[in-house]
Design a protein around this nucleic acid. Structure first.
Length: 490
RNA sequence: GGUUUCGUGGCCGAGUGGCUAGGCAGCGGUCUGCAAAACCGUCCACAGCGGUUCGACUCCGCUCGAAACCUCCA
């Protein structure tokens, strides 16, 4: 099963043809959220990026197993002296089990990702549910001689590993630089080498999340869960591993080392990384305190938001940039996205009402449109180009509706197919209008517009405008065309 | 300091060695009772300086500027 799909592999820093290991199956692992805070705009980017990858691979006919983890381990420290871990504080103050906090935010994550029309992955494993696998992997690495135990903690021996393997190949780092640049942090004295990282950490008394292990009551190292769970569900060698660029080092670098040490070979064929969302040129992130939660976007309740932005506006906004570029947030950009989305959705409604003619005139090249959309997707998931092409389709649709152009039956079917396939199925955008009683509303509107038409015929503009303005207040726009008036819910 | 990546018009954002990105906003026009929407036309670019080339926004070098990672973070 050969495909024309090319994707950018961070490991080689080149676009490579996608050739799955076991076609028609495709395995994909993406680093999911750490559930100790409300999901924000930054969470939406990888979720949507890899949602597109998931959807497109399925569209191409692959049987995709998409695994995205939930990190619910090791970040909840009850020590209130340092940091601003409000969740731990909350857990302690309200006498909550830490897992209650994790559950709460995991649920929140699902709700908001559903709102963004992000498909649920095939498997969403939790780190806390895979202690056995993680402990087993630590043992494997110890047995292989690439780890050592100190006081109940186990560390990965980066120095030894780097003698026979290239630690830093993914992020382009050199070990010597890592030595000289690593800060001396508390608790590092146990490590033989500053670049070593924890596979298992003995829990300090204040650490409230802990599990028994052969070495100590403690918790697994940050990088371990992904290696253990990807191996469990996707095997020792799988196709795609994705995540945010900020995870490149040390997280993914360490995953590579862990798998190499435990299994004896690398586990990932293609590494994909989405770029960050910035706010005034700076990364939007938890640590910087400049993030805006999805809930705040949807409700408009945040000081830097001029209005509320719907889930699909956010999705459109994100898809209008290529996933490997930074994307700068601003009200202006969001408002542009909102208008663009509306234009696209209105056109998709118009499309369903279009009447075909004998031929397409002028010959506007709808099949070329299809080709260039596929080329764009195949070129490392270039969603902005896909959208630009869809807007070309919008122009055609509106021109036909305006009777300035005509479209053949075959071309119309083709155009409908493109919109259904790409706009809705692959880009995953959807019409957000809600209408529970379409017949009732339609009947009412026909009546109201008939009355207005009468007033227009007698040039009673006062009544005519009163009706139109009144409807506008209810977010129903009336458009007067050559063949009577039409209406639209905003 | 090291690693990685950028610098495109009023805003957001694609792309290419010579030929239109696209969206939003602006301007002019068509349509309309007036609008709205739509369509047509149009203005505004490729950080700076060198080099390669018949030709560079696109390749190379330097300068300036910005970001991410090196510590939990999507």
């Amino acid at each position: 099963m050969d495909s024309d799909l090319y994707l950018y592999n961070t490991l080689s820093r080149k676009k490579e043809q996608f050739q799955p290991i076991n076609p028609p199956f495709a395995g994909m692992y993406v680093c999911g959220p750490t559930v100790y805070g409300d999901p924000h705009l930054g969470h939406a980017r990888p979720a949507i990026t890899f949602d597109i990858v998931f959807r497109y691979l399925q569209h191409l006919g692959y049987k995709v197993r998409y695994v995205r983890n939930i990190t619910d381990v090791g970040h909840l420290v009850a020590d209130l002296d340092e940091g601003d871990d409000k969740i731990a504080r909350k857990a302690q103050l309200e006498q909550l089990e830490p897992m209650e906090i994790a559950q709460y935010y995991a649920d929140r994550y699902f709700i908001y990702m559903d709102a963004l029309n992000v498909k649920r992955p095939s498997i969403e494993p939790r780190a806390s549910g895979h202690m056995i696998e993680q402990i087993l992997m630590v043992k494997q690495i110890l047995d292989a001689g690439y780890a050592y135990e100190v006081n109940g903690s186990v560390y990965f021996d980066v120095e030894k590993y780097s003698k026979t393997h290239e630690y830093g190949k993914l992020s382009g780092r050199v070990l010597e630089d890592l030595i000289s640049n690593t800060r001396s942090l508390e608790g590092q004295e146990e490590k033989r080498h500053p670049a070593d990282f924890a596979l298992w950490k003995k829990a300090q008394p204040e650490h409230i999340m802990r599990w028994p292990s052969p070495w100590s009551d403690g918790f697994p190292g940050w990088h371990l869960e992904c290696s253990a769970m990807s191996t469990k569900y996707l095997g020792e060698y799988f196709d795609i591993h994705g995540g945010g660029m900020d995870l490149l080092f040390p997280h993914h670098e360490s995953e590579i080392a862990q798998c190499q040490a435990a299994i004896g070979h690398e586990s990932v064929k293609y590494w994909m990384h989405n770029n960050m969302i910035t706010i005034q040129g700076q990364k939007m992130g938890k640590s910087l305190g400049n993030f805006i939660t999805l809930d705040e976007f949807f409700t408009g309740k945040h000081a830097s938001l001029e209005q509320a932005y719907s889930p699909m506006t956010i999705r459109f906004f994100i898809l209008q940039a290529h996933y490997r570029s930074t994307l700068d947030f601003s009200n202006e950009a969001l408002q542009a996205a909102e208008k663009g989305l509306k234009k696209l959705m209105t056109a998709s409604e118009t499309l369903n009402k279009l009447v075909p003619s004998e031929a397409t005139a002028p010959d506007s090249g709808i099949s070329e449109l299809v080709n260039s959309i596929y080329s764009a997707m195949n070129d490392d998931f270039n969603s902005p180009i896909v959208m630009a092409n869809l807007f070309e389709g919008v122009r055609m649709i509106n021109s036909v509706a305006d009777k300035k152009e005509t479209i053949s039956k075959a071309d119309l079917a083709l155009l409908k197919n493109i919109f259904n396939t790409f706009l809705f199925d692959i880009l995953g955008l959807k019409n957000e209008k809600t209408n529970d009683q379409p017949e009732l509303l339609d009947g009412l509107m026909q009546l109201v517009l008939a009355i207005r038409q009468k007033s227009r015929e007698t040039k009673d503009w006062g009544t005519s405008d009163q009706i139109r303005d009144g409807l506008q207040k209810l977010h129903i726009t009336v458009k007067d065309g050559k063949e009577g008036s039409s209406w639209n819910i905003e």
